[in-house]
Design a protein around this nucleic acid. Structure first.
Ligand SMILES: NC(=O)c1ccc[n+]([C@@H]2O[C@H](COP(=O)([O-])OP(=O)(O)OC[C@H]3O[C@@H](n4cnc5c(N)ncnc54)[C@H](O)[C@@H]3O)[C@@H](O)[C@H]2O)c1
Ligand SMILES: NC(=O)c1ccc[n+]([C@@H]2O[C@H](COP(=O)([O-])OP(=O)(O)OC[C@H]3O[C@@H](n4cnc5c(N)ncnc54)[C@H](O)[C@@H]3O)[C@@H](O)[C@H]2O)c1
Lengths: 227, 227
DNA sequence: TATATTTTGTGACTTCTTTCACAACAAATG
DNA sequence: CATTTGTTGTGAAAGAAGTCACAAAATATA
């Protein structure tokens, strides 16, 4: 089993998520039709980019008529198989894990954290709305709820061993918050989210901005960060 | 003042962070010298990629001798201006904000959350180690600690107004956790982190993997996500 | 000191991504 | 119903990112 490290998700997919968020917002504001340039403007990209991305995901609009927001949104739901619910487990109910387990947006998008796990016996809460189980029950719960995706929020030192155990029990996708690049077999998807790096990269660019006051530099800089 | 939307940070910069993490780990394991292929293997990229990235950031090694880990790390510190401390403010002490404010890795990397802010009067704690102030004291604290970078962890609905206020008080960089694309002037850096999207993109790829059992598809898929 | 060996650093090449530009089409207009 | 208008969808062009391959350099070896 070839062990590899993976990291980032295709930009075009991220932009589709972005478009969806913009569309939802426009819809709430009472808009029900967009042109590629309306959406592009909203999302901070070019109209051609919007159309190319749509093309990649097989999303079609109406010549001259633009795109119906409702149609777009439901096409996107379809692409993401968002109709059905997705059961998730979360490992590590510390600071971050507890925060994530309470995050309501996951549920809004049909991603349900059905159970959480921790090694610390003081953290266990079997009867809570989102239960906190001991790690010994991991396999049982993954099987019962047909869980395929897990969130890792354990300390750096334990992240790889937890990942290995999850994969042994059939997990195929992991969002990893521990600041370590997980090694996983090639048929498993990992998205390593490193919040320190996210903050640090902002600091890096801010320092550059503060040093170079000239506008030309800022334009260049902007390219580095544009979607 | 041209308002633009920004999103992502250059891949090569992210890889430099990745290399740094790998190097720290290797160092802890007692290694003190690497070749481009050692590090590449550790980071899951090609040796050429490592050397190209180093070249972009002006990092030089020793012909035949590879790279001294200590030298590499201190060169990286230098690039990221990590010698001095960076003062950060955090807005929104809810679930996520509280978790982030307690995250020790920020401090380890000289990024200090000097103060946090919230509108909710019940959340205020002026005498705590990391104080929670009312928003009225924002300008005072930003000025006093020469803060240039902020973390936004307020609800979606308030994120743009908070960003505007921060920028008015001289903030030049923002890490935004609210699931909304902030509009900011072009001399301000924003890194929008959307955890829902991160999770959802993993689900997307997992579904693809589960559908297409053939190995060729997985190779293709893998390309989509590789660094 | 000459030769062999090994690894860097980078220009050339390739592949991937974005932008351009325009044919095709649908709606509006007269 | 022909013509104009305006927008999509997509190949082609341009640009960016990643890989290859090899000269240059440093070290080891004889
Ligand atoms: N706190 C944050 O805001 C934050 C932000 C970004 C990343 N992270 C990362 O997320 C991870 C968790 O951070 P945290 O601040 O919540 O830490 P924490 O120490 O508060 O929580 C870790 C939890 O994991 C549990 N745990 C430890 N080993 C385990 C194992 N083998 N199996 C199951 N559970 C185990 C612990 O009992 C604890 O409850 C860390 O890797 C950290 O670097 C945290
Ligand atoms: N909880 C999570 O795990 C999580 C994960 C990813 C993203 N987020 C996002 O992070 C943000 C915060 O999430 P949360 O779960 O902590 O929400 P929360 O409701 O627990 O906390 C929000 C906090 O912001 C404060 N606030 C509201 N308006 C404010 C304003 N104008 N100025 C200053 N403070 C203000 C509130 O008083 C509250 O304390 C949201 O945008 C959410 O979508 C949260």
């Amino acid at each position: 089993m070839k062990e590899v490290t993976k990291y980032i998700i295709k930009n075009s997919l991220k932009r589709i998520f972005l478009y969806r968020a913009c569309l939802s917002r426009l819809k709430q504001m009472g808009v029900d039709k967009v042109f590629s340039y309306t959406l592009a403007n909203e999302a901070g990209v070019t109209p051609a980019q919007v159309r190319k991305d749509f093309s990649e995901f097989g999303i079609k609009g109406n010549k001259k008529g633009g795109y119906e927001i409702d149609e777009l949104l439901s096409k996107m739901e379809e692409i993401f198989h968002r109709s059905k619910d997705h059961n998730i487990v979360l490992i590590g109910m510390g600071n971050l894990g507890q925060s994530l387990s309470r995050y309501s947006k996951f549920v809004q998008r049909n991603m349900n954290i059905v159970a959480t796990f921790d090694v610390d016996p003081f953290k266990l809460k079997m009867r809570s709305e989102i239960p906190v189980y001991s790690m010994t029950r991991l396999k049982e719960i993954i099987d019962r709820f047909r869980v395929k995706v897990a969130i890792i929020a354990v300390p750096e030192i334990s992240a790889q061993e937890v990942a290995d155990e999850l994969i042994r029990h059939g997990i195929k996708g992991i969002v990893n918050f521990a600041p370590v690049l997980l090694k996983v077999p090639s048929e498993v998807v990992v998205n390593n989210v490193n919040l320190c790096d996210e903050l640090e990269s902002v600091i890096y660019y801010v320092q550059k901005i503060l040093k170079s006051e000239g506008l030309k530099n800022i334009e260049l800089l902007y390219k580095d960060m544009k979607y």
